[in-house]
């Protein structure tokens, strides 16, 4: 196949550089040599059919894949020019820099307040003022403050799904990460909650680098600045969202976006 334009765009101000990343589940190869850069303080959406490896891919950025025994990784991921798979890198510190929001909201069975400051507590922060401040700031950023400021000490388990997911986002930003990974954050939510989360993502953009995996192309089109299309463990196309959606370079991308399969 010959490409008229480059299917994979080069980024000048990249925060993350991925070079020839291979990932194996036991014997099967889940990611097949991915090379791309993630632009700083922009929203990057990863799309593709189920099982194409996008969730696995973002879990490489905060090394959540370490938890799974059978996974092997080769290649290189650098964040601000530091190889995160280097032995000298501390996973705990890495995870503080790279926050994550999961597909299924997972608030802890604690109060809303404690949920937000969990990241600070485990880092040993005891300053009450700082904690209070962080809670307010994070909840405000997650657009939960107005709803929740009187219920801070109630259990998080009594909230609605959308609220819980926003709480998880608040929890992630409370430790002021540089990058926030979002793994299909809206897939289990109703349309109203989804639109609130999307709004929130747009608001956060500019302060954080956000990498979002989504199944929903409209959502990718709505919230992201850049879009990467994955297919069976390979990065097929990566570029400005507008460009990818309007004039995809590769045939597979076009097929997927126009809904011919997926």
């Amino acid at each position: 196949m010959t490409a008229q334009a480059t299917p994979i765009m080069q980024i000048t101000d990249a925060i993350v550089e991925v070079k020839d990343l291979h990932l194996y589940y036991g014997d099967s190869e889940a990611l097949r040599g991915i090379t791309m850069s993630i632009p700083r303080k922009k929203v990057t959406a990863l799309i593709g059919p189920s099982g194409c490896g996008k969730s696995t891919f973002i879990r490489c950025f905060n090394r959540m894949n370490d938890l799974i025994e059978s996974i092997r990784i080769s290649g290189e991921i650098t964040i601000d020019d530091q190889d995160i798979y280097d032995n000298s890198v501390d996973v705990i510190e890495l995870r503080r820099r790279v926050g994550m929001v999961f597909q299924k909201w997972n608030p802890f069975p604690k109060s809303i307040y404690e949920n937000v400051i969990y990241g600070l507590r485990i880092a040993g922060v005891r300053d009450k003022n700082l904690l209070d401040e962080t809670v307010e700031k994070s909840l405000k950023r997650a657009a939960l403050w107005d709803e929740m400021k009187d219920r801070l000490h109630e259990s998080a388990m009594g909230m609605s799904g959308g609220q819980m997911q926003r709480l998880c986002i608040a929890r992630a930003i409370a430790v002021s990460p540089e990058i926030i990974l979002m793994d299909e954050p809206c897939s289990a939510l109703d349309p109203r909650s989804t639109s609130r989360i999307e709004e929130l993502i747009r608001e956060l953009q500019g302060d954080y680098t956000i990498i979002i995996v989504t199944h929903n192309m409209q959502q990718a089109a709505r919230v992201s600045d850049f879009t990467a299309y994955f297919y069976i463990g390979e990065l097929v196309e990566f570029g400005l969202t507008k460009r990818v959606f309007t004039s995809p370079v590769r045939k597979e991308t076009e097929d997927y976006i126009t809904g011919r399969f997926g």
Binding site: D90, I92, E93, R96, A123, G124, V125
Partner: peptide
């Protein structure tokens, strides 16, 4: 981040 705490 408090490095000592992290170490501990």
């Amino acid at each position: 981040m408090d490095n000592k705490f992290l170490q501990r």
